[in-house]
Design a protein around this nucleic acid. Structure first.
Length: 495
RNA sequence: GCUCCGUUCAUCUAGUGGCCCAGGAUUCCGCCCUCUCACGGCGGCCACAGGGGUUCGAGUCCCCUACGGAGCGCCA
């Protein structure tokens, strides 16, 4: 299956100035809301500008990266509707799109850096470095690489390598220069290179470090705009330095404010329930997530539910906020309700079938579809639909909750005896029926409707009574009123 | 510790010197609709972090303070 048919457009229409954005996750876990928002903003920006959205898998860390995570991540992106034009499982002239397969490309650029003398091998051990950092911190100094191996002689280097040492490669950061760039979100930024220590661009196992591969690949793949987390802001000068040394064109970077948890702390494993996977399993619709996420750190003039196309059309860098945004489940639920209201019957049917695994008992697919339509206003998840199916298809379970029991008991057996009789005389519409029950028993308002609602639907709230009445049909109505009558008699004799 | 980023209702946000005694949305509360709950309609509560400047005028510009966050990793 090719991703994102909706966004596919002729490559011919693209030229060098066409926007290309990317999402470059590392497959070390499930996508969380924060990642998803980053992906979404890149996707929306590309869409808004008629550009392309690229997916690159950053699996350089063999320890943590897992192919199954990459698969899951791509599924999640597809499910959200964030298909990519270029990347794994798609076309593209700049592959491979998994960093683990780009070793030869990186080797070439390492060679260029070595030839130019902008990198040097570093033999410092992990513990040595940790110790140095600790000492610097203790002395009130910024923890930075002290430059131990910066000026080793070629002879010394080769003798250490001959002795079996596996050095890392460090980037020689020039002293006393400024690195300036204009952030797409935050405006002009300026950093002093003296605040940056020589950093590792190649690990001792010869795999590339993030700063390096991430920057190189963006340039090589023709990425023009990078929207990424604010945590990368102070890393940007490093990447700019690498690109400059290699004479590669850097993309424009924009740093998005972070998404924080309900308690204000950054979203992390701690908030495990916010992975896209889990939200999906909990029954959230992609459209709900999209509408919610798109408004976190970005404002829209329209407060109403928007299709992905409309979200894209109105997306603009100027409307991006700079302050961190807090995850708020109440708001997500709001968009979920909107998404349910906006969804087609088929969408909702598929949604129920998928998350429930199968149609609920006593409710085939066509009946389920009708049921969903009946209870559309009253549900948030497929689980809610299942609960309504239990109440409105087949036999009604006995009253369980306290409000339910109280309402039935409060009405009493005489009430339901009258209701049962009146329901059976003809096949009245609900309005006439309720009126007749009221006239016979003297009950009115809530005292009239609530017992009927609970007897007939099993819940104190739900769709209009008239619609429930029609849905049930004469037989189920009779059975349910009789069950309520029996329940009241039982309770009354027990007293 | 150093460098960088941020701070408007409980939450998401509008606001680019007068249109703001700060607007919208969500939550919560109330009223209306329907002899019922929900849906819907209407309304209410609720904010410029603090202090100094600049200015005729500051949420908006500058400085300081406080608070929060990020980076300074052979994680990305």
């Amino acid at each position: 299956m090719l991703p994102c048919a909706a966004l596919r457009r002729p490559w011919k229409a693209m030229n060098e100035t066409t926007v290309k954005t990317r999402f470059a996750p590392s497959p070390s876990g499930e996508i969380h809301l924060g990642n998803a928002r980053t992906a979404l903003f890149n996707y929306l920006y590309a869409s808004a500008r008629g550009g392309a959205f690229l997916l690159r898998i950053e699996d350089t860390d063999a320890e943590r990266s897992r192919p199954e995570h990459a698969q899951a991540l791509m599924q999640d992106l597809q499910w959200l509707g964030l298909g990519w034009h270029e990347g794994p499982q798609a076309d593209g002239a700049h592959g491979p799109y998994c960093q683990s397969q780009r070793g030869a490309i990186y080797a070439d650029f390492y060679q260029r850096l070595e030839d130019a003398g902008t990198v040097y091998p570093c033999f410092c051990s992990d513990t040595q470095l940790k110790l140095a950092r600790k000492a610097q911190r203790a002395a009130g100094q910024p923890p930075r690489y002290p430059g131990t191996c910066a000026h080793l002689s070629p002879a010394e280097v080769s003798s250490r390598i001959a002795a079996g040492a596996r050095p890392t490669l460090r980037f020689r950061v020039p002293r006393d220069t400024r690195v300036d760039f204009v952030d797409l979100v935050r405006g002009p930024q300026s950093f002093n290179s003296d605040d940056i220590g020589d950093f590792i661009v190649r690990r001792s196992d010869a795999t590339p470090a993030f700063f390096f591969s991430n920057a190189i690949d963006d340039a090589l793949m023709g990425v023009t705009h990078v929207l990424r987390g604010e945590d990368h802001l102070t890393n940007t000068p490093r990447q700019l330095l690498i690109l400059q040394a290699l004479d590669l064109r850097a993309p424009s970077y924009g740093h998005l404010s972070l998404l924080v948890g309900e308690d204000g702390s950054p979203l992390s494993k701690r908030h495990g329930s916010q992975s896209i996977r889990q939200l999906r399993q909990a029954g959230y619709l992609p459209a709900a997530l999209l509408n919610y996420l798109a408004r976190l750190g970005h404002s829209y003039s329209e407060e109403s539910f928007a299709t992905p196309e409309r979200l894209a059309a109105e997306f603009s860098l100027e409307r991006l906020g700079r302050a961190p945004a807090r995850y708020d489940p109440a708001q997500l639920r709001h968009w979920q309700k909107e998404a349910i209201l906006a969804a087609s019957e088929q969408t909702l049917l598929a949604w129920c079938l998928q998350t429930l695994g199968a149609a609920p008992a006593g409710c085939d697919e066509s009946r389920l579809s009708a049921l969903v339509n009946l209870v559309r206003d009253n549900i948030e998840t497929p689980q809610d639909v299942a609960a309504w199916a239990r109440r409105l298809c087949g036999d009604l379970p006995p009253p369980a909750g306290e409000p339910e029991c109280d309402a039935l008991r409060g009405a009493g057996s005489a009430f339901f005896a009258a209701a049962l009789e009146l329901a059976q005389v003809s096949e009245p519409a609900f309005g006439e029926f309720a009126k007749a029950v009221g006239a016979r028993t003297g009950a009115k308002g809530k005292a009239l409707y609530m017992p009927l609602r609970i007897a007939l639907s099993g819940a104190p709230h739900g769709p209009e009574m008239g619609r429930i009445w029609d849905w049930l049909g004469p037989r189920a109505r009779g059975e349910r009123l009789r069950a309520a009558l029996d329940y009241c008699r039982e309770v009354e004799t027990a007293c």
